[in-house]
Amino acid sequence: MTSSNESTKGKAQCSTCDAVCCRLTVFLEPEDNVPAHYMARGSQGHLVMAHGADGWCVAMDRAQMRCGIYENRPAACRRFAMGGPYCNAVRADYEKRRGKVEVAEIAADGNPVFDETKATLE
C-alpha cells in the first residue's frame, strides 16, 4: 500500500488506484449505450450511472476494481484523463477524506462499508 503522498504523485495507474473516478457522478449522454439497469435518475432528473450502497458505480467489477462495461462505458468516462489534473485532484481529495471516514459496518464479503456522512475535510 502506498502512502497518501505517494498515491497522488506521479502518473496514476488503474492497477494501483482505488477506482476513485468510479465514485463520481457520471451524466449520461444520448449516444451512450449503457444497459438500463446501470442507469439512475439524478436529483435534477438527469440520467446518470447508478451507484451502489458502497458509493461506487454499479458497473464497476469490485473484485478487479475496474469497469465491467469498459468497451461500452459512457462518453464522460472515455473523456476522463487518467493521471490528468482532474484525476489527480479527485484522488487527492479522496485520500484526504479516506483517513477521516468512519467504518459504519463490515459487509458480508469482509470489506468495510464507510459512513461518508461523518467525513470531514481539514
Results as ranks from 00 to 15, higher is better:
2 T>L: 10
2 T>R: 06
3 S>G: 14
4 S>W: 05
5 N>S: 13
9 K>N: 12
9 K>A: 15
10 G>D: 03
10 G>T: 00
11 K>A: 15
15 S>H: 04
15 S>D: 10
17 C>Q: 03
17 C>L: 01
18 D>A: 10
21 C>G: 11
24 L>S: 13
26 V>K: 07
28 L>A: 13
29 E>K: 11
31 E>I: 14
34 V>P: 10
35 P>V: 10
40 A>K: 04
42 G>L: 04
42 G>N: 09
45 G>M: 02
46 H>V: 03
47 L>N: 09
48 V>T: 13
51 H>P: 01
51 H>L: 10
52 G>M: 08
54 D>S: 14
55 G>T: 03
60 M>D: 04
60 M>K: 05
60 M>P: 02
61 D>P: 08
62 R>M: 14
64 Q>F: 01
67 C>F: 02
67 C>L: 03
67 C>D: 05
69 I>F: 12
70 Y>C: 13
71 E>C: 13
71 E>S: 15
71 E>H: 15
74 P>M: 03
75 A>L: 05
76 A>G: 03
78 R>E: 02
79 R>N: 11
81 A>L: 04
82 M>D: 01
84 G>P: 00
84 G>D: 03
86 Y>N: 07
91 R>N: 10
93 D>Q: 09
95 E>H: 12
99 G>E: 12
100 K>W: 07
101 V>S: 09
101 V>G: 09
102 E>C: 08
102 E>Q: 14
102 E>R: 13
104 A>R: 15
104 A>T: 14
105 E>L: 12
107 A>L: 09
107 A>S: 08
108 A>R: 15
112 P>T: 04
112 P>Y: 01
113 V>A: 13
115 D>T: 03
116 E>P: 03
116 E>K: 09
117 T>L: 09
118 K>N: 11
118 K>P: 09
121 L>W: 09
